[in-house]
Nucleic acid binder design. Sequence first.
DNA 1: TCCTGTGAATGTCTTCACAGCC
DNA 2: GGCTGTGAAGACATTCACAGGA
Lengths: 240, 240
Amino acid sequence: MARLPVYLRTLADMRDSHVTTVSSERLADLAGVNAAKVRKDLSYLGTYGTRGVGYDVEYLLFQMSRELGLTKDWPVVIVGMGNLGAALANYGGFGDRGFPVAALVDADRAKVGSMLGEHTIHHLDDLDTLVADRDIAIGIVATPASVAQDVADRLVVAGVTSILNFAPAVVSVEPPALLRKVDLALELQILSFYRQRDSVAGPEKLASGVNGHVPPLGGTVSGPTDASAPAGTARPGGGR
Amino acid sequence: MARLPVYLRTLADMRDSHVTTVSSERLADLAGVNAAKVRKDLSYLGTYGTRGVGYDVEYLLFQMSRELGLTKDWPVVIVGMGNLGAALANYGGFGDRGFPVAALVDADRAKVGSMLGEHTIHHLDDLDTLVADRDIAIGIVATPASVAQDVADRLVVAGVTSILNFAPAVVSVEPPALLRKVDLALELQILSFYRQRDSVAGPEKLASGVNGHVPPLGGTVSGPTDASAPAGTARPGGGR
DNA sequence: TCCTGTGAATGTCTTCACAGCC
DNA sequence: GGCTGTGAAGACATTCACAGGA
């Protein structure tokens, strides 16, 4: 479930505030969802709550970390040292949360050998060795769209079965490999779409509940993003 | 619908390849979805296809751009010039797709006045003026989590009704304002979750149909049950 | 009394399957 | 014959509502 990480983050904040117990309702508020949903989600992990009391923050954190596979770090390789790739390499937010950047890779030999932050840039051809030597579990694709599929394939061959794709292209991998995508401009287009739609329809309702949802046309804008599983898909014909 | 931008990108690629007509099936392949879904999605926009033939690429592009509100540029302000914010400011991918970066803002006066790429960094207090003067429609929040909600509120007050939040925090705005979130570490955690789950369940199915789905999550896991005590050793993700 | 855990109901999205048109 | 547009069926997710334990 795509909401587990949100709960995890919320719980971690609570622990840092020395909160020891939390009710589903409180957690739901902080995570921006419905209380029944929280209970249902948590019940998938097992029966960790206490009726009449709530959930033990520390214990729940432990169980969730385990379920999410976060009890150890997962080294990451970033492929593509253009603007975005370099940015992600410098961004500290990965290592902080258990995904240390372990290698940087580019196909451009002019970049190979130069330093970026504390890492040397390696050539794409060295991917297999890097992955094996540094126990890399996850690959981030930050290349131009035209080579994204090829890079993803090479990552899979090298043994990286979890890929996060930032290139604006449809990329797919064969199960059991997993791929998720983040398309930044696409997010802006979606915002543009809803804004466009609302301005046509006219902003009638204003003060709704705590959590404002945009009903028209089915899509949710506020609130959690889609929950689609990152299942691999057979390669479409015109790849590359 | 969150898939429209994907179709749009795919269609743009086709036009660049001088393809004039496309069937729902072909478009579905390239966009990585089901053909019926494509038809249903497109039928929301109106009846733009021709039975027995398919869709006219150029015409469909025009209609979709209009529906997505992409017939004009939407200037963007980026708030928070830390690693990620600076990265996004340098990232060319926004302007290319109709969302030019029009202003950079930070709360740290030490950064105000310095250049980043072709932009000067302004102070957060100047937000209202900047938004009004530069006709800014969209705000990108790339601040620390602790101030994300405050920044979002200030954006709304300044007249920015579409917000893209990169801070790892739950942020909400009152309708009719819109907010979407992108949490990079969260994406990695989701990957980690599925990988974890699959490795426990064992990768049985391999070559499935066109669309491989990861089994929901209700599935029985015979693997390691809770057992071990919570004890403070857990290494939950929410570091910071 | 308080709050969890969960069947049942409701709502939403996806897929199927086919009528209708080119 | 090929392909779109769409009702109907199915799968899935969310919410309700309440039994039952602390």
